[in-house]
Amino acid sequence: MVKIGKLELGEFPLLLAPMEDVSDPPFRAVCKQNGADLMYTEFISSEALIRDAAKSVQKLDVYDYERPVGIQIFGAEIESMREAAAIAEAAGPDILDINYGCPVHKVACKGAGAGILLDIDKMVSMTAEIVKRVNIPVTVKTRLGWSHDTIRIVEVAERLQDVGIQAISIHARTRQQMYKGEADWSYLNLVKDNPRLHIPVFGNGDIDSPEKAAEYKAKYNVDGMMIGRASIGYPWIFNEIKHFLATGEKLPIPDLNERIAVAKKHLDFSVEWKGEKQGILEMRRHYTNYFRGMPNFKTFRTEMVTAETYAQVAEILEQVAEAYADYEFQS
């Protein structure tokens, strides 16, 4: 049984990665219903939380139906991160996560996210202060290092454990790689082989099929996996991986009716969370992903991302169902 603090997550938990503009409550809801064991919010700026910025405060929304859930924060200043941690804890998550992995320029080059990998001592000090500030388990998501020449992930994981984190998720790329090239999970083996390390280690990067999940589970000895991009428009991946790990067999891929049903459920959650107007705007980045790869879909896609009412979107989905009634998705 994998545990984060007293939180039991099963034998080999699958985590939904925190993804900016993706991992909102409606998306987390459909991932939860399709097998995700632990979810994280989009990353939230510590400075914005302290300023009480409305958009960042709304990202603190967590719901009982998605538990266990963690709130993820990022920032470059230790005191701001301490204050933000307290604000996040008050929102009632099960876990507080620290983002030490975001590679985008506007974050990393200010010393936050993956930028802190250039100053491991500060990373450890910041983590220690946050652990002392809150009463819920603290976890970390990070990368292997800033660049290939600066990878110190075995040391980093041990030092973060020693100041109190209770799990670590490692994206097996450096900041320099961004999202390019192949994730190198061999470093996760080195982390797991450290006899002093006893916290769970979750692997992240390139898990996009049940077969790859099974291969990497056997090869790299991780305690679970965090899945990000592969779940966008395809929340079924969590249950597909679980089924394959348990039986060695693949579940049938979701057909058009199932995709429409989940896209509509996602839309319903979005409208319930933010109201019809904003909920539909938020969904524009999501629902066409459910129909990725379908031929001659451009007209429907355009209609979806310009529809302004719930009724319009529902009608478009009905038209998709009728137009592609005989279409079969390929695995």
Rank of each mutant, 00 (worst) to 15 (best):
A214V: 09
K180M: 13
I73C: 02
L9K: 02
L245C: 05
A91S: 15
S209T: 09
D64H: 00
R67I: 04
R285H: 10
L256W: 07
Y187C: 04
T288M: 06
F74H: 01
K219R: 11
I253M: 12
D61C: 00
E129C: 14
E77T: 06
Q161I: 04
K274Q: 08
F27H: 10
F74A: 01
G233P: 07
C31N: 11
A323M: 08
V305R: 15
G248R: 13
V156C: 08
Y327W: 11
Y63T: 00
M283Y: 06
D326V: 00
V104T: 13
L197I: 05
P200V: 02
Y220W: 10
D184A: 07
T299P: 12
Y187W: 15
K6E: 09
P26T: 05
E318I: 11
L245D: 06
N135D: 14
P25F: 03
F291D: 02
A307N: 10
Q278R: 08
Y65P: 00
D119S: 13
L49K: 03
E89Y: 08
I50Q: 12
P200D: 00
N257V: 07
L281W: 06
S169I: 09
R301A: 15
F12Q: 04
G181F: 15
T299L: 15
W185H: 14
Q33G: 15
D162F: 04
D268K: 00
N189A: 12
A17R: 01
K264N: 06
D121T: 13
A218L: 01
A84N: 10
I227W: 01
F43E: 01
T174D: 05
A91N: 14
F238Y: 14
A17D: 06
N194R: 11
R259D: 12
I199N: 04
A91Q: 10
E77S: 07
G228T: 03
K132R: 15
F291K: 06
D119F: 01
S23V: 05
L117A: 02
N289L: 10
A261S: 10
G233A: 12
F74N: 01
L281V: 13
R175G: 08
P235W: 10
M123G: 13
A36M: 15
F300D: 03
A246T: 09
N289R: 11
D97F: 03
K180V: 13
I232F: 11
V262L: 09
T127V: 07
V305N: 13
E11F: 00
A183W: 05
R159E: 14
H286R: 04
R292V: 05
E322Q: 13
M126K: 08
A218R: 00
E272F: 00
N34V: 11
S56Y: 12
N135H: 15
E77H: 11
I87A: 05
K6C: 02
W146C: 08
I71G: 03
Q176V: 12
A261I: 06
E83H: 11
A172G: 08
V104H: 12
A183Q: 07
G233F: 08
Y216N: 03
I130S: 01
I73V: 09
S125C: 13
E308F: 15
A54T: 08
R292H: 10
F291H: 06
M126S: 06
P103D: 07
Q278L: 11
T247H: 08
M1K: 10
Y220V: 00
E282F: 07
H286I: 00
D97N: 14
N194Q: 08
V62G: 00
L245P: 05
G164W: 02
